[in-house]
Design a protein around this nucleic acid. Structure first.
Lengths: 197, 197
DNA sequence: TCCAGATCTGGTACTCAGTACCAGCTTTGG
DNA sequence: CCAAAGCTGGTACTGAGTACCAGATCTGGA
């Protein structure tokens, strides 16, 4: 990671990493399946944490609210070491192939979360219903969008606030139009300040 | 593409493609920057079409509705040659790296669409507001989800219907909860049967 | 008609990620 | 103390992508 931060991801070869770690190229590939596994290796297990957090959400909770709450473990990790996550986020911006790989890994998140969302929606056959997958994919998209803006703002904005704004925007995006302006935010279901103690 | 369909994407080398096309490996890379450019080359220009369709949407239209309408050109292309798009979709499912690359290219869609959405939302500084990016990213996520389910159903379901269901699910996902069941679909703003003549 | 410039082409050689295989060393357990 | 298991490094390979060079072809004037 230090090499990546110093030289950039694309400008760092596996040989450099291996020698810096005091091991051979062969041994490196025994611990990391691919080069991007160094950066994105934690993404997979993070997906498990998010999926677990989702199923432990209360049953009565609206689905979108539950999805928002599922991201709480992730937000806590980010809050614990913001500069670290910010550096990684900047690295992802500089290396498009790395970002694409991250999005590909997040597809596994979907598969882990879709069943629970389908159950919450009472979807008959989850495989033929686009709604569960759409909700999950959209929630993850909101997370990515919030993270992008957060890293672009150089940590001047709060990631949790950005995520709340992002996910709320999907519920009350109609406020931008003139024909539906009965403030939906005051209905009682407002994300924002809930989700964490 | 024939080779990809016959042998699979990963099992086809650039040398095979070049010789099948009657040209050298060098010349191949003069027409296609990368191997996946064969499959995903149209994604970029498709993004321009979607972005153009977005800006031509009526100003009074709710943002989410405008985003749904922006996908109409894409749906028309799919409807014109469904079996072709289905084959490509199946190929993307078999080759995870290819799908990741597609998601990476769709990030360019976001950058093209975000400014217009920010304008429609009346966002002061688009760079520090997560909402425009979240809406665009979520809309694209819905498109991908609908396409996934569509390809998984072997074209037995209609892609347009699936996309409408997917994007509607984000507006009325609260129907799954028990505390907000005032049918929002009957409010007058229903996607579904609008968007195309 | 001919010639010069631009363009297209194929070939060679290279870097780098990732895989397969093999041989030697160290560690563990009986 | 020895054998099996595991870890290690080395070599050689495939395949994508890049850089460079040299020949062929195609243009547009003179």
């Amino acid at each position: 990671m230090e090499l990546f931060f110093k030289q950039g991801y694309d400008n760092t070869t596996v040989d450099q990493i291996a020698s810096a770690a005091g091991m051979s190229r062969t041994s490196f590939f025994r611990y990391f399946a691919t080069k991007d596994d160094i950066v994105l290796g934690r993404v997979d297990e993070l997906g498990h944490q998010v999926a677990e957090a989702l199923v432990t959400r209360p049953e009565a909770e609206p689905v979108w609210h539950a999805l928002r709450g599922a991201f709480d473990p992730l937000l806590e990790l980010t809050a614990a070491a913001p500069e670290r996550w910010l550096a990684v986020a900047r690295m992802l911006s500089d290396a498009p192939s790395l970002k694409a790989s991250q999005l590909g890994r997040e597809l596994a998140w979907q598969d882990m979360m879709v069943p629970d969302v389908a159950r919450r929606l009472g979807a008959a056959n989850a495989a033929l219903d686009a709604r569960p997958r759409a909700l999950v994919a959209a929630a993850i998209a909101c997370l990515n969008a919030a993270r992008d803006v957060w890293s672009a703002s150089d940590e001047t904005l709060d990631l949790t606030t950005l995520l709340d704004q992002a996910m709320n925007a999907l519920i009350d995006q109609m406020d931008g139009a003139e024909n539906r302006s009965d403030a939906r935010l005051s209905d009682g279901i407002v994300l924002g300040e809930s989700g964490r103690p």
